[in-house]
Design a protein around this nucleic acid. Structure first.
Lengths: 357, 357
DNA sequence: GTGAAAGCGCTAACAT
DNA sequence: ATGTTAGCGCTTTCAC
């Protein structure tokens, strides 16, 4: 792991331009307070030498890194089974790029990696962190807060840690679920079932809550627990059909679940949407568009979520300016929310009508 | 973007342990050449102070960064429409983590970002790069080689740049395609069609080649150009059916394409696999398992590809030891292959039989 | 407006 | 085996 070739230093550029290192530094960093012609000469020297600042040296003195960690904690294989994180990453990347910040990706496989992540974050390698921790009992939020790194969460974190005051960006899972169920109601359905997601994740809980908001006293037998997978959807659908053969609609916690449910419905001879209307969540294209019939579902703008997370974090970092901020003890935040900074954002969802409901 | 809290330095640890900075440094970096009791005292001090080495300071002198860039170049939205990159990232991440290296993710959206990536890589921020550049005319490979950064490519790069000698990891697209087609032949099919992928990508070309290896003088009307998307698959399938109503099998360049083709086949009343056998490529689970019938397809071990890419790169980095390596001019490599280092690897594929063929 | 000089925190010779 | 010392390349007072 070595550098390949001695690259030109500030010194070299200075020599070539016939100025001091300080002047070159000024030009390179915005160029204010340097007279036009001089600045021009410096810029030319930079160009000719192919000079690129050494970030390590710079960080050493500025204590900034222009880097943000993205922590994706998901022991399950599910993580990359869907395009979710990819889109999110893309949104994040776009925003960070626009601010000249690098994206350091930290993937964790179970608790074993938590210590490593904690050490890294506490090690001051990055200016902030974007953390995806979707499980209720995840120790990560607390760990991150202890590390004293400004953080924005992706998805409402569970309350396991000191996360109560955490800044997060989430889709309006509850509102979206309400819209889904209302849509079914509007279709004239009355025996509306719900297949939940994995209930140790806030998104599943929130969608379930949304369902109950509309179906205030739903028959408890119309609720079956799923796990966000097609297999879970199948299992739950079979249960439901057995318990309540008269059901006429299903709200599945996500599209994958819906696809599993759909298979069972068809296998049991129920026509969709004629006999049973089916609605999913996520608008995960490769699934929602490919099923037969295509899924009516609730769309969330994943990429925008990512972009927003990054924007929130960067804004928070900016406003803490030069002073030592942070809340190493996990005080009232540690997040960029400290001192009237940005607070959480919940993005709207939209109903996408296809053929299944 | 500031550090949050003044963290303890080597100096502080040294003071607390009553030794010199050098000794602490030795202990922190492996601890050889330090007597047990002393080392123990140092370790305790480190522990008590919660000391974490400042990577910037360390990089400044060692010129190592323990960081690897992962460049994903894909203007198309397709990138994250499938789990491909996610799995790859995961494999990479595991391997890098095992070597205490960080993963810096660089996503590019079209040519505009190329300059940025080139600057970053040339800037010596990372020890090496893993680059996904799947398009034939992509300028990225050449750019990377010019940057003089040791690089391993994901997927056989096009020959547009100085990439001819590049080290890469790829699936055996050609061999897999042969296996797919042979499977169809083994089923007794004779009028076997092929829907290609986007032919500006090496994977599509290689799969097409594999098809031709088996169907040596295939009726050219049995070939239709697709683009790796379901829509492309639909279009191509309609073409094929029109040109050759007698076809009895289709090898689609990937599962997404196959899913599109499948829809058209069903819409036109062809039973799968009875009338037309259909085989895909990738074994992209959310698609291959959800179609009706589920897709027979060719599986590639994506995660392993990622892991291998990282391993190859790290091995190459190790062997170049302390000396200035690299090939800034794009000499015989610039990749870790320099000097008898690792060379490219092509991973085997396997046939996964489901119901469609 | 520009230059000189002092470090940032660390490692790696070199002494001892 | 341990300590001393000289920078790594940069930013940033502080003089001029």
């Amino acid at each position: 792991m070595t550098d390949t070739v001695p690259r030109p230093t500030l010194e070299a550029v200075a020599a070539r331009a016939g100025v001091s290192r300080a002047t070159v530094s000024r030009v390179v960093n915005g160029g204010d307070g340097v007279r036009k012609p001089l600045a021009e000469r410096v810029r030319r020297a930079v160009e000719e030498l192919g000079y690129v600042p050494n970030q390590a040296a710079r960080s050493l003195v500025t204590k900034r890194h222009d880097a943000v960690a993205v922590v994706i904690a998901e022991p399950e294989t599910r993580v990359f089974a869907d395009p979710f994180f990819g889109l999110q990453l893309r949104g994040i990347s776009k925003e960070l790029t626009a601010h000249d910040a690098q994206l350091v990706l930290l993937l964790t496989e179970g608790r074993a990696d938590h210590a490593r992540v904690g050490r890294y974050l506490a090690g001051g390698h990055v200016d902030g962190a974007l953390v995806f921790s979707l499980h209720l009992e995840d120790p990560l939020p607390e760990l991150v807060q202890r590390a004293g790194v400004p953080t924005v969460f992706g998805g409402r974190p569970g309350w396991g840690g000191g996360a109560r005051s955490a800044v997060y960006v989430d889709s309006d899972n509850r509102g979206g679920a309400r819209e889904a169920v209302r849509h079914l109601v509007g279709l004239g359905r009355r025996r509306i079932a719900h297949i939940t997601g994995a209930l140790d994740q806030t998104s599943a809980v929130d969608r379930f809550d949304g369902f109950r908001d509309v179906m205030v006293d739903a028959d408890p037998r119309l609720i079956a627990e799923g796990d966000f997978t097609p297999a879970g959807g199948e299992r739950a659908m079979r249960e439901l059909l057995e318990r309540c053969p008269d059901l006429d609609a299903v709200f599945a916690a996500n599209d994958l679940t819906a696809s599993g449910a759909l298979r069972v419905l068809r296998a049991q001879g129920r026509r969709v949407p004629d006999d049973v209307a089916l609605i999913g969540f996520d608008d995960m294209l490769p699934v929602a568009e490919q099923t037969d019939p295509p899924l009516t579902t609730i769309r969330q703008d994943i990429e925008e979520m990512g972009r927003l997370m990054a924007r929130l974090l960067l804004r928070g970092l900016d406003r803490r300016g030069g002073g030592p901020g942070g809340a190493p003890g996990g005080g009232p935040g540690g997040g960029p929310g400290v001192g009237g900074g940005p607070s959480s954002v919940v993005l709207p969802t939209t109903l996408v009508r296809r053929a299944s409901a």
